[in-house]
Amino acid sequence: MKANTKYIIGAVVVLIGIAVILTSSLQNNLVFFITPSEFARDQEKLGNRTIRLGGVVEPGSVKFNRDTIEVSFKISDGTTVLPISHKGTPPDLFREGMGVTVQGRLENGVFKGEELLVRHSEEYKAPKPGEKLDYRRIVAAIKDSQ
């Protein structure tokens, strides 16, 4: 067997190996966030470990406390709704109906967020003719919902 052929066979074997590892075992470890439903289901197992939750900000649930710089809201995945309390200013795109991820842990029944990130979709839209960017509504959703 020529050395050349050996290299090619070796390369193919390694390729298949990496592909198998990535599609099978890493599937559970590379998950960026879990949903409120999964959180509720595995709550006993998770305890108060630090995890990252992902869901949609429930409309009408955002409250911002200007004195303590705390934002409280509910996130939902359609079936389970979970209250969140986060200290710090939320990102600019944070608003009701937006996808967010919160890293934190459960403390006395409230999920305390340490890192709040906005997860936007792959959709990009220009305003329709005559429609203007409703900055007031966007700002209001974050600021004046006490």
């Binding site: 960026f32 990252r52 939320p90 990102p91 795109l93 944070f94 890192e115 906005v118 997860r119």
Partner: peptide, 16 residues
Amino acid sequence: RPAWGAYWSWGDARLT
């Protein structure tokens, strides 16, 4: 940074 709220996040499969 302006859209998500972070320059980088370990744990995201695309970024990692």
